[in-house]
Write a protein that binds this DNA or RNA. Sequence first.
DNA 1: TAGATTGTTAATCGATTAACAATC
DNA 2: TAGATTGTTAATCGATTAACAATC
Lengths: 233, 233
Amino acid sequence: MKDSRREPSGEKLAPKAVVNRVCLYLRQLEVFQRQGESTVSSSRLGASLGINDAQVRKDLAFFGQFGYPGIGYRIEGLIGKLRHVLGIDRDWPIALIGLGNLGRALLKYKHFRRRGFQIVALFDIDPHKIGQMYDGLPVRAIGELAEVAASRTINLAVLSVPADVAQSVADQIVACGIPGILNFAPTTLAVPSSVSVVAVDLSVQLEHLAYKVLNTQSAFPDPAHLFDGASGR
Amino acid sequence: MKDSRREPSGEKLAPKAVVNRVCLYLRQLEVFQRQGESTVSSSRLGASLGINDAQVRKDLAFFGQFGYPGIGYRIEGLIGKLRHVLGIDRDWPIALIGLGNLGRALLKYKHFRRRGFQIVALFDIDPHKIGQMYDGLPVRAIGELAEVAASRTINLAVLSVPADVAQSVADQIVACGIPGILNFAPTTLAVPSSVSVVAVDLSVQLEHLAYKVLNTQSAFPDPAHLFDGASGR
DNA sequence: TAGATTGTTAATCGATTAACAATC
DNA sequence: TAGATTGTTAATCGATTAACAATC
């Protein structure tokens, strides 16, 4: 430890893998806190998540010196620090675009609210949905996005529209100056580098699971022979 | 190309990142196919997804030799090959456990069905939900899982229950011999290594997006000064 | 043929893990 | 003090990219 109370926030952008794990650390620290614990070691935190202890220390060290040699990490303090470095120590007003089955489920998803994420405006392209109320919020036409985003300083959009309209809606999101998109549409969005996108394709996740199940050494009966009519290329 | 029609399927487990990208290649190839294309090069496929062309070739080469020098990849054939290596050239009967807002949305999610994933049985712990019908399927008590799984050879479970019961439900899934779990509960599951888990934590995705937005060099006004009361550790 | 594009090797880059002095 | 645990360096491991002979 070179110097004692330094916190290098914002110096370098953390790698994607680090940020994802830090989100998990935060989630698990809150579990420990609810259980009445006050400190935790990197090895115990890692074990609860299936992550190597050196990895835990290195990930946390990326954002500052939070630990105490011989003791571990003070849970309450670390939670506050991680919330700060992740940027979730504030409110994030969100526009939800697309009120299909998935969109409506996301609207009611409790965990978002608990994290400071609050859906404050709804949009859809379907004329039948526009004007309806969901969870106390009116559904607006996408054309109103610019106006609403400006007046409420919305900076995140959750996109749950069909794939074939996702790019055109994304273009409008970008045009409004909204700098972040959580994309549930199963398509890759082209956006300027100043706009951040996190993509969640539920089918891809399930496909990945299928691959893992088929390729995990086990007693699982692989009916591959039923399909191997294909030969060569 | 050492020897001409080899297909090393099942030799080594592909890295996670490779599998995820291959799922995206497949998704994009189907787009090209719908547009009436018959071949595509690694550079064009990569460009449409923001992936380096050498990466595309290397990922595909992991599973076999599918391309033709000077021509590219024949789309229809490659789609079939990738479906096969991913294991989605068959039906996957699925148990959906937890019929909250998210679970009900997943039940109606069209893209699963199109990929061969079919939800064939519903389970919940809430006595008020048990016996109700959703989408033509009755909600069963979790105690019936073993029986139903055995009779229908279910091999994937989608878990959308609250975090505090997720582990105990996962234990029952494992006990039934179901080898794959898609976990939407915001908690890490402890399962034997013979069981595959893919975790999707929607809050973590949104947190990651918030981090990216705050740390992308841009005109985005960072109100961090409102929060920096914290000092030291 | 000339141009295009693959599969693969080598080079680069980044991420993970082991080890340990410093610290409490 | 002895034991525990950090932050960090060095070693390992794996993933990405550039380059190019082989091929169509």
